[in-house]
Structure formats: C-alpha cells, structure tokens
Amino acid sequence: MNAIWTIAKKELNTFFDSLIAYLLLLIFLVLAGIFTWLYGSDVFLSGQASLRGFFVMASYLFLFFIPAITMRMLAEERNTGTIELLLTKAVTDRQVVLGKFLACLILVIVALLFTLPYYVTVARLGNIDHGATICGYLGLILISAAYIGIGLAASSITNNQIVSFLIAFVVCVFFHVLFGFFANFTSGLVGDVLQMLSTDHHFQSIARGVIDTKDVIFFLSISGLGILLAELSISTRG
C-alpha cells in the first residue's frame, strides 16, 4: 500500500506541476458548466432542480478527459526508459499500475469536487433529489474507474502517447456509445450482451438513483480487467 501511495503521490505532483493539468481541469469544468447551465437541455430548460443533465454531459466528457489523463502514465515511462528504473525498485508490477490508477482516480475526484458548487446552486433553486445526486456522483466515479482501467491498458501497450490516447478513446467510445447503439438494432442474446456491455446503460441506471450491485460489479470488472491487462503488458518485457 505504501508503494502504491508513493507512486500515486509522485504522479499527482508531476501532474499538478504541469500546465496540462490545469488546462484539462479548466476545459472539463467550462464544458460541463456550459451544458449544465447554458446550452442544450440545461437546468433552466428542463425546469427541474436536477443535475441529470450535468451527469450525462460529464460522462461524455470523460471520453476525452480520461484518456488525456491516462495516456502518458505508462507510455511515457516506456518511451523514456524510466519504466526500467521503476520496475527494478522494490515494487511489484501491480503496485506500479495501481499507483497510477489511484493517481488518475484522485484527479477525476478533484475535478468532480470542483463541480460541487453546481450541486449547491441547483439545490437552492428548488427541491433537488439528494439521493439521486449522490448516486449520480457515485456513478461518475465508477464510470471513470472503468475508463481509467481502459486508459492504463492502452497506455501500457505503446510508447507513443498519441497512440495511447486514440486507443483508449476508441475503446471508451465503443463501451459508452456504440455497444448501446448496436444493441438497439439487434435482438435476442446478442442484443442483450451488447446492452450489458454498454457503460452508458449501467451509468444511467445508477444516475436514476438506483444502485444495483450488478452495475457496480460491471464497472469494477472493466476497471479490474484494464489493470490486469496493463500489469500483464508491463510484465512481459525483453
């Protein structure tokens, strides 16, 4: 645990040491803000004191935001050769991946903390469903865990950050949009499986305010699978 935290702390320090971190946070908050308050099915248009619009928007923004965070995590280490340094220290391959995972998750949580003012504001405008809002945040954290897993796996198989970003982005889009989209056109078992693989489907059900263990397990398995893949790919070397 100590080693995991040491790695996570180092990643966070490096991240907040660079301009990209603030730029990413700013873009995320601006876009999420625009779609919550000003444009599309925003709070005023729907006339409901609810953050549903924000949650849906944020889950889409994660498709860019998370691959952008995860892309350098392992790809850069491979590119500069520092991965050799890291893996010959007294840490296991898994601790390295988990440390990076934890750092990314904390970053996402920090970004979400900055959106709490939205919650407070909307709550003052009308009767907000506190339970559903908390579920929405939980759903966002779960979906981001899944995408971080995918992002780390993508980052572990290449030493090019752009390739890493693109792979993670495409895979996330498949899970978020395309599986659900194809599920609408297919029936029977294939349709059910596709529906089951859609992260959006599981996310919507949590954001509605119902926490089903099935949904939680789904997100955690995607995330765990990504971590295992990343671990496998950094442990096959030479």
């Binding site: 040491d17 500069t80 520092t82 050799e84 340094l85 010959t88 220290k89 007294a90």
Partner: peptide, 16 residues
C-alpha cells in the same frame, strides 16, 4: 529487489 541498487544503461530519469 530491495537489496539491489541498479543504474540502468543510458541512465533514464524523470526529467521533470
């Protein structure tokens, strides 16, 4: 691993 101190070839470092 904790008993070994290793300087890899090309001396990779975290430049930032």
């Amino acid at each position: 691993k904790k008993y070994i101190g290793y300087l890899p070839e090309h001396n990779p470092l975290y430049l930032d």
